[in-house]
Design a protein around this nucleic acid. Structure first.
Length: 559
RNA sequence: GGCCCCAUCGACUAGUGGUUAGGUCAUCACCCUUUCAAGGUGGUAGCACGGGUUCGAAUCCCGUUGGGGUCACCA
């Protein structure tokens, strides 16, 4: 006997159609509903399609989404994306985004993780409307502070015979699991403690006896046999499960804490979330959650299961194959703009022929739609992230860059003696010039200091290969001669320097390159960098003359 | 192994029955150029396979293959 149940059906009310259409967040569906309004059709096929669309819409209800991490350490980039999509969806719909902390595993709890998680999200611009830090009307937002609530609802399940006590020990269960695996069966609880009155084989007296003994126990949900459970995923469409493949999930652990499955269903309901957007790894436990909603007689929220973020080898993104913590990327110097933009594009795109690649958070909110989220997993490709970071650096206002690099420079100046006056090289005017010369040549903001060190410090060494390539026996003589030209050059500007150099070189029948490359090497220490003339102008006459003179002393060429 | 999900260039993707299969990153070549970048132009490169449905399939259906997820008193 198979009972078909759809747990996600909103009662379809034809008269609501105009209303539904007006509130519908999805353009395509709105259009579809409007077309239905214009040409009412009642054939079964159309009705089915219409139900499909209505199921995705909550009429007149304020959208509430959540991100529910467990405080076990850092924020995973996959977590960031899940949080971001929840946030974007909520904000797009003028609703609320909430953070809830799932700390029901006390052994894995890490001290500062909660605050760190929330701070990191805020770094990315994802600010919660309600959270343990911000408060709200549906608190507490930390599951370990809601234990009495879970207990209460668990008692209800026990009473209504949808859950039962289980005294099997971990060893017993493990043994059972091994045996089943060896037989090629799906590991599943053998229902040893399912009481007689619930269709099991354990006499209720035995349960009572164990109880009185004070034996440790867990509480399991009784999954009905032969039930087909299905729902509409907002991203994937209809998905169906057979209850016979579902285990009698533990709801309450022996330490009195609920499991994820139980706590999250209770909280998602009590906190009135309308849409649950989470990772695809939760898809297999969907039937357990749906069954719980049915046990309680609650209408489930809409669900969307996001595709996974992948390693280059297409397995689930993991620590072993690179950085997964958002903090790692922050430490490396990635900006929130690039990270958020990048992560948003892994699995979502605007569609409709757009070729835009760079989006601000505001733009993402404006343009995001859950229906445009793809189904297939996406490889986290650092090269594209790097490119995005460069795009942002190219376009970021200089004053904003100055705010982040000045502290780095000052710290560097404490370690290393500057060649030029502190006040000058840390001034807005000076830094701005450095930024404009270097912004198309750096990959990260901190490289304005490290890659551009010759704007602040005398080069300590000269690139050996470059010296070998660019020096001839005449070079030092030419430099010495040109030095005196630079000494009196007025003004000491890029334009004037270029003019002087070309004038200097032409009568000698030499190419400008004969002097250009050696000059660059003496002044910067390296063979690459911005426009030579502009660089000389910014570094300034004093330092340039000093560096050239010193360089000539230091570089000796075999004649 | 059971269950579930997924499948367009190396990567991210556009594409919803008729396109020379488009864009971005990466890559290659050329141009620009004092170097390195940036920029410009162009190129290489893709519908996993097999059956249907259809006048016509990347697109719809079925199967195969491949990949992934999940099967805890972790989330």
């Amino acid at each position: 006997m198979v009972r078909k149940t759809c747990f996600c059906c909103v009662p379809e009310v034809f008269s609501l159609l105009p209303e539904v259409s007006r509130f519908c967040p999805f353009k395509k569906q709105r259009d579809f509903l409007n077309s239905l309004l214009l040409t009412p059709v009642f054939n079964p096929v159309k009705q089915f399609t219409q139900q499909f669309y209505i199921k995705h819409i909550m009429v007149g209800q304020r959208v509430r989404t959540r991100f529910a991490p467990s405080p076990t350490g850092y924020l995973h980039v996959g977590g960031l994306r899940t949080a971001l999509y929840n946030f974007l969806f909520a904000k797009k719909m003028k609703g609320d985004f909430i953070i809830r902390i799932e700390d029901t595993d006390q052994s894995r709890k890490v001290a500062d993780a909660q605050l760190n998680l929330i701070r990191t999200l805020e770094w990315a611009g994802i600010v919660a409307d309600e959270s343990p830090e911000h408060g709200g009307n549906f608190g507490p937002y930390v599951q370990s502070e809601r234990l009495h609530i879970y207990r209460e609802y668990c008692d209800r399940l026990l009473e209504e015979k949808n859950a039962y006590y289980c005294f099997s020990t971990s060893e017993e269960l493990e043994e059972n699991r091994q045996l089943q695996m060896k037989q090629g069966l799906q590991p599943k609880y053998n229902r040893k403690w399912l009481p007689e009155e619930m269709g099991g084989s354990m006499p209720s007296g035995e349960v009572r006896r164990k109880m009185e003994e004070g034996a440790p126990y867990v509480i399991r949900m009784k999954v009905p046999d032969y039930v087909s459970v299905w729902f509409e995923d907002m991203i994937r469409g209809p998905i169906e499960f057979d209850s016979s493949t579902i285990d009698d999930q533990v709801l309450m652990k022996s330490d009195g804490f609920p499991t994820y499955h139980f706590a999250s269903v209770i909280d998602d309901h009590l906190m009135k979330f309308t849409h649950i957007i989470r990772g695809e790894e939760w898809l297999p436990s969907m039937p357990k959650h749906l069954l719980l909603y049915e046990f309680f007689g609650w209408e489930p929220p809409k669900f969307a299961h996001l595709p996974l973020l992948l390693n280059p080898d297409r397995s689930k993104l993991s620590k072993r194959q690179g950085d997964v913590a958002v903090e790692d990327y922050i430490r490396k110097g990635y900006s929130c703009d690039a990270i958020v933009n990048f992560v948003a594009m892994l699995g979502w795109n605007e569609g409709e022929g757009t070729e835009q690649e760079v989006y601000s958070l505001e733009e993402l909110i404006e343009k995001f739609s859950i229906e445009r989220v793809g189904k297939a997993g996406a490889v986290f490709n650092v090269e594209k992230l790097n490119w995005l970071e460069k795009q942002y650096i190219k376009n970021r206002p200089a004053e904003q860059i100055i705010r982040t690099i000045r502290p780095l420079l000052v710290a560097e100046l404490e370690k290393q003696r500057a060649e030029m006056p502190f006040d000058i090289i840390t001034s807005d005017r000076y830094l701005e010039q450095v930024i404009e010369l270097m912004r198309e040549r750096v990959g990260f903001e901190h490289e304005f200091v490290t890659f551009s060190s010759y704007f602040f410090f005398e080069p300590g060494t000269y690139e050996e290969e470059a010296v070998k390539k660019r020096w001839t026996p005449e070079t030092n003589g030419l430099l010495r001669e040109f030095l005196s030209t630079l000494e009196v050059l007025e003004p000491f500007s890029a334009e004037a320097i270029e003019g002087a150099l070309r004038e200097f070189v032409a009568p000698k029948g030499l190419k400008a390159a004969a002097l250009i490359h050696p000059l660059r090497i003496l002044v910067s220490g390296v063979s690459f960098g911005p426009s030579l003339y502009h660089m000389l102008e910014v570094v300034g006459r004093d330092a340039v003359l000093r560096r050239i003179a010193k360089g000539i002393e230091r570089i000796s060429v075999p004649v």
